[in-house]
Write a protein that binds this DNA or RNA. Structure first.
Lengths: 284, 284
DNA sequence: GTCAATATGGAATTTTCATTCCAAATAGAA
DNA sequence: TTCTATTTGGAATGAAAATTCCATATTGAC
């Protein structure tokens, strides 16, 4: 072996190992770097798997795993694996606990930390909320409408734009024809003018409502193009133009709302649509 | 064998196993009861130990462990062990169940509904995950760096673009000067060329990494402009260019990931930055 | 391009481990 | 007590897994 590692050099816990890997990753040869990346990205797999199964999953040879372990001073793969197992045993304390552990006089840290905590808690609440408020039948109807469309028009402005833009990204990956409306105000209406009878639209709008979105939805509805919408209020101007609409209220922290629950909803809708299309056999 | 167990009788998860053990504990012979007590008291040992090591620790013979497993319908000790391992894999099991119980709706009946449930559960898991993986200290450093910047450059492509675009929206509302980089490839570099010593950048990139984002971050770092980044792997090319970086792995449902946890993180960071600025008195 | 050094794949080997088996012990019934 | 059924300990077995080894491939220096 080229490098002689003394006992002190061998990482004794996961954090030390991670640090060592990150420090030396640049100098590692190809396959070993591959293992390094896999190990840090899938620590649970390393903890539970066998050398053979991990090797397959990481697309290397079992012997490479042994070499990797030896590179970091371990006797073999098994001793390295112990580190990954120990990590699961000592359950890492949550953010809450670590926050409490901070020195009480460090006010700034506590403040940023509590903001972080607040948003995570709000997101949990939002998720609990949509689980109860979204009606499965309505969801199924929405999926049917959109899965049956030739092109799905995604309408969103401002605060809701990130949702549609993510759906657009996902639809692209899933090879579902779509058109994102809301990028630059000028060409929106031209795009919508092309929408035909076999198309459908999904509109998202949260208070304060962008009036263009409501107008565009109305326009489509008047042309018998079905609209599915996501809003934060039954009084949203979108609701009246929609065949199916969902009310989804994000919980707030200190008056600010994240889009956590909306994102989960959007992804569920997106994947459900793609799945339905695949079943219907007209995937594109 | 005295008792014939049908497939349905074999506990499929830890809770079922625990219930079965408690129910039959009284009727078990001495050594098997000993194993039962040990198993419930030291589930982690069962998960990771070998039959020999566990046997020694529980003061029985290895064969007794096999008999114990067979008593509960498993083929052998190994299959029983899988239950104990599964328990550690799913950090917080039961989100799916909780959702079902919480919800008056029965989402599980319909195909689309189960997709919906899956994404909500995955989002919950993701949130639990960031709560443990984000270090308050690093968060505070990130807030300080970005709050101190004149202009915050937001770098993101593809899957991570919705996050930055939402941050841009929120920064706009909060009157924090910022520049969203990633809209159209052409003008990106021109915008970044204007970044100066007093600015900072926040970059988001998830696997598969957009190489432009990494290059842009590298470019900024080389000009001594501090970069804070959010990635899903310590191996992200962004990490090496960053003063502070966060690793945030979104849980997946059926291979698809939503951005729920990332959104909560992004909003927390955004609001924390604005709040810090307000305190420093140079809010905009 | 040539050579040396390093890295890699894959088969061969060795070690470790779960399981099986059988003899001995124990508990329970008559 | 005596007989039987059940439980237990511990060695033997066979399967599975980690590790080693060697031939081949790749990289880097000159």
């Amino acid at each position: 072996m080229a490098t002689v590692e003394t006992t002190a050099d061998i990482p004794q816990d996961f954090d030390a190992l991670k640090a060592a890997i990150l420090e030396r990753k640049a100098q590692l040869p190809k396959r070993l770097r591959q293992v390094a990346a896999y190990a840090l990205d899938n620590p649970d797999e390393i903890a539970f798997g066998t050398a053979a199964s991990i090797a397959t999953s990481a697309d290397v040879q079992p012997s490479t795993l042994v070499r990797f372990a030896q590179h970091f001073g371990f006797e073999g793969f098994s001793s390295l694996q112990l580190i990954f197992r120990a990590r699961l045993r000592e359950r890492t304390p949550g953010y809450e606990d670590r926050l409490r552990a901070l020195s009480a006089n460090d006010h700034s840290k506590l403040e940023s930390g509590s903001i972080f905590n607040g948003f995570v808690a709000a997101a949990h609440r939002s998720l609990d909320n949509i689980a109860t408020s979204v009606d499965p039948d309505a969801f199924e109807r929405a999926v049917n409408i959109l899965a049956g469309a030739e092109t799905i028009y995604l309408i969103a402005k401002r605060r809701s734009y990130p949702i549609s833009s993510y759906m657009a990204y996902a639809f692209g990956k899933l090879k579902v024809r779509h058109q994102l409306v809301g990028t630059s105000a000028g060409i929106d209406d031209d795009m919508l003018a092309m929408a035909g009878k076999n198309d459908a639209a999904f509109a998202v709008s949260f208070s304060p409502y962008a009036s263009e979105s409501a107008n565009q939805a109305r326009l489509l509805a008047s042309r018998k193009i079905p609209v599915v919408s996501l809003t934060d209020s039954a009084f949203s101007p979108l609701a009246e133009s929609s065949k199916v609409w969902f009310e989804l209220v994000e919980a707030d922290h200190a008056g600010f709302r994240s889009l956590s629950a909306s994102m989960a909803f959007a992804m569920a809708l997106t994947v459900a649509i793609a799945e339905k299309r695949r079943r219907l056999g007209d995937g594109g």
